[in-house]
Nucleic acid binder design. Structure first.
Lengths: 147, 147
DNA sequence: ATATTTAAGACCTTTTTAGTCCTCTTTATA
DNA sequence: TATAAAGAGGACTAAAAAGGTCTTAAATAT
């Protein structure tokens, strides 16, 4: 199955939300979960995990919450996805060099290798800085203001 | 998780095996399973399924087995994968147009759409005719003959 | 007849996904 | 210093998907 897990999807939404905050502003789970349409408890667990991985910094207690611990320009979609799901291997035979005993005789191997390269490129060339600058987000804000 | 299922992997090996047979030669499960390193009973189920889907034609009884029911040049990797796993959607939000209520405000959506296009292109541009012509396979045959 | 082959479907185990829930700790502030 | 507001940590669960096996039946060549 080639599908992004919910966990990674939610992680992306969360990191994007933080990328959109004014520099230094602390956001807390409840706010983010509501804004991004993510189950609160699940997001809490995800953020806890992303903190350990060095994407976020948390502060406990009243007024606490999360901030990005890296520049949004230095975080790619691929980073967040692989943090949540582990390294991407489109086919088991791409896990290790020499893992697949068929590598020398299997013509499909090369197709996978190239497909994977292209796929990773798609995801790694997209930073959260870039995402945060999307005109779509500005449009959304405008719409809200009109209301 | 972005990973090819075993079922699809085995299906690919099976179809490739059939693509390599002399035109009209019937191959049977036991032979293919052994040659391709696939659990026999599982491959039987997979082939049964691929027959229903119109990729293979089966004949029962002694001397029976499977042949391709399409030209290898007309079957792509994507065809076989989607037959086994269903249509590929890298993200749930790509399932239907207008499925994702965030489509107008979510900047990630477009990244997924493009990544998916490129990915499908990688898989659909590879036919079994092309795979069967790979020099790798000829090398493998040579090696065997030497033995 | 019998041996060989697929067809069909019931059944099973393990892994992954997608969460929830409860208790504990930290911290600002009234 | 009591209290409310936050995250930390871990146990737990339900549902779905993955990856099979097994048994019985039907077809067919010899």
């Amino acid at each position: 199955m080639f599908r992004l897990s919910k966990g990674a999807e939610y992680a992306i939404r969360g990191v994007l939300h933080l990328s959109l905050q004014p520099r230094g502003r602390v956001a807390y789970i409840d706010e983010i979960a509501t804004a991004q349409g993510v189950p609160r408890a699940y997001l809490a667990k995800i953020f806890q995990y992303l903190s350990k991985k060095g994407f976020l910094k948390s502060t406990r207690g009243a007024g606490g919450g999360f901030v990005l611990d890296r520049d949004p320009g230095e975080i790619t979609l691929l980073d967040v996805i692989e943090a949540m799901e582990g390294p991407i291997h489109l086919n088991d035979c791409l896990i290790h060099k020499d893992f697949c005993e068929r590598v020398d005789t299997c013509p499909v191997h090369d197709v996978w290798r190239e497909a994977q390269e292209r796929f990773l490129e798609s995801l790694s060339s997209c930073t959260f800085e870039k995402l945060a600058e999307s005109p779509k987000l500005k449009k959304a804000t405008k719409t809200k203001k009109k209301k």
